[in-house]
């Protein structure tokens, strides 16, 4: 059961390994706080839609399941949209059009089709939670790199007059501003995926298993 939760975080990370949900990842990663907000929104939508879809899997006819899933997802996205508009106008304007676009985020529909439509309630909720956390973590990683190097700041919270923003001395006067532009988002994404590939190659290199075995035997 716990495997359903952890698989989305590392092994099947939706953004960095499965390459799903790329548009919001690049679109809102200019500011760390926006990335956290987007991640929370997607976690809410994923958990709720996975739960409802796994409960309704016997009710929704197979032929019209995709439109059915989309309606369920769009309902929760509208809830997120209205809640953000009412309680956090800064975040609402920062995320902009990417809030309604959660509907067409391939991760959400992908999990509904691949998991929630076939599994029971609890595993589906855990799967949605894990995938959502995996999405949030990769979004935070990219936003962390882009905001620190691109503008020399790190915004942790921003709501009305309450702003928690670290200014990195030395970087904020002359940041690598290209990383804050759309082009920089594509560069950072390319390098992060290459880093993940290199890590995967390193972990599966020949000889590693033998070494571990020898270590185990010696112990």
């Amino acid at each position: 059961m716990i495997k359903e939760l952890t698989k989305g975080i590392f092994k099947e990370n939706p953004v960095l390994v499965l390459l799903l949900g790329l548009c919001p990842t690049l679109g809102v990663s200019g500011k760390f706080f926006n990335a956290i907000g987007m991640g929370m929104g997607v976690i809410f939508v994923l958990v709720c839609s996975n739960a409802v879809i796994s409960l309704l899997k016997k009710v929704i006819p197979n032929q019209v399941r995709i439109p059915g899933y989309i309606v369920v997802i769009a309902t929760f996205v509208t809830i997120v949209e209205l809640v953000l508009k009412a309680f956090s106008p800064v975040l609402y304007s920062g995320l902009g059009i990417f809030i309604p676009l959660i509907v067409v985020n391939c991760i959400v529909l992908g999990r509904a089709e691949a998991f929630a439509g076939k599994n029971r309630l609890i595993p589906s909720v855990l799967d949605g939670l894990g995938m959502g956390i995996g999405f949030t973590l990769s979004l935070m990683l990219i936003a962390f790199i882009r905001e620190i190097l691109g503008s020399g700041t790190l915004t942790l919270w921003e709501s009305g007059s309450v702003v928690y923003r670290f200014v990195i001395p030395g970087l904020s006067e002359s940041p690598a501003a290209v990383l804050a532009t759309p082009a920089g988002a594509l560069f950072v994404m390319g390098f992060v995926i290459a880093g993940i590939n290199a890590l995967k190659a390193y972990r599966s290199r020949p000889g590693r298993k033998d070494k571990e075995k020898r270590k185990g035997a010696a112990a």
């Binding site: 390098f191 290459a194 590939n197 190659a201």
Partner: peptide
Amino acid sequence: APFRGVPIAFI
């Protein structure tokens, strides 16, 4: 090798 395929496409 790590850049082959998708990463180099992004760059």
